[in-house]
Structures are given as structure tokens and as C-alpha cells.
Design a protein around this nucleic acid. Structure first.
Length: 158
DNA sequence: GCCAACGTTGGC
DNA sequence: GCCAACGTTGGC
């Protein structure tokens, strides 16, 4: 099993939104970055996903999800009315893919970006080193566990 | 195929 | 709202 981090703006699609979906499952479409797409293709059923909220006052990991369906064509790329429309994507060779994710758990408290930056266990984490511009990132089992554990513990003093 | 210019992203 | 970092584009 592999571990991932996926970024979303909660105003667009939050963890609470996912939880409210039928079957608590939602399609993760709109990824238009090649490196992120390649990560989507690597995802396997049951892989675990850290759910990260960006572009808010305090960016944070807020919970977890699992991969409910492996990569399949992202139809929004062909939809001329969609913000995510991409004329480069031809129907015979889908350029962009999406996965389905299933709600797993909401953390007892958010683990914030500054907190993650401060955690010794996360000094080599992709998010900490390279930032959040890549919307689908790999996470090591150790990093994933450290963040889950932090979420179960009291927040550190600010 | 390189690289400068440009646009976008996201944290602050 | 600003700016740094990065991905993408297009001219050569």
C-alpha cells in the first residue's frame, strides 16, 4: 500500500463535502499537471490519502481518505464549458485522468503547515521541501504515521 | 533541445 | 495584495 497527499481548496471541495457525498465517495478531477497526473496513475485501490486544505488562513492536513477507484479518463477535460477544459486532450488518448476517493476519517484537529514544517519527522517531506504546488504528492509511510499521530495529540503551543 | 519569458500557484 | 517558486510555452 502506498500513501499520498492531495490538495484541495475547501471552498471548492472540502473533506466535509466528501463526507456528505453518496457512499462518502467523490471523483477527484481537474488535475492539469503532468507530475500530479503521473502520481494519480500510480495510485492503487486502497492506498491512503492525506487530505490537505490549501489557500485558507491556516493550510492544514485535515483528515484521510482512501483510493476507491484507480485512474480513469477525466471527462471534464473534454467539456468545453468546464473551467478545466483542455483542447489538447483527445478522446482517443485521454490526456488527463482522475481517481475516486473515499472518506476515511476527519482528524480530531487539523495538523497545520507550520506545525508540519516544525516536525523533525517531516524534514524531508515533499510538502515541506518543495511546497504545495504539486497537488498530488507521494508521502512515506513514516511521514503519514507521524501526521496521523500528531492529529491525535494536543496542538503544540503557537 | 535549450532557455528566456510568461503565467499560475500558494503561502504569508 | 505581494512575491517567490515553479511549470509551461514558444522562439530560435
Amino acid at each position: 500500500m502506498r500513501y499520498w497527499l492531495m490538495k484541495t481548496e475547501p471552498t471548492e471541495f472540502s473533506l466535509a463535502d466528501l463526507k456528505r457525498r453518496p457512499g462518502q465517495t467523490g471523483g477527484w478531477d481537474g488535475v492539469r499537471n503532468y507530475q500530479a497526473r503521473n502520481n494519480l496513475r500510480e495510485m492503487r485501490l486502497g492506498d491512503r490519502v492525506l487530505f490537505y486544505h490549501s489557500s485558507v488562513k491556516v493550510p492544514a492536513a485535515v483528515g484521510t481518505a482512501t483510493v476507491g477507484r484507480e485512474a480513469y479518463p477525466d471527462a471534464s477535460a473534454w467539456d468545453k464549458k468546464s473551467d478545466c477544459h483542455d483542447p489538447k486532450s483527445k478522446s482517443d488518448t485521454p490526456l488527463w485522468v482522475m481517481v475516486d476517493v473515499k472518506f476515511e476519517a476527519e482528524f480530531p484537529r487539523p495538523v497545520t503547515l507550520p506545525e508540519m514544517r516544525a516536525m523533525p519527522a517531516l524534514q524531508d517531506m515533499f510538502l515541506v521541501v518543495k511546497g504545495m504546488r504539486l497537488s498530488v504528492q507521494p508521502v512515506t509511510p513514516e511521514e503519514f504515521a507521524a501526521i496521523e499521530q500528531a492529529a491525535q495529540s494536543p496542538a503544540p503551543p503557537a
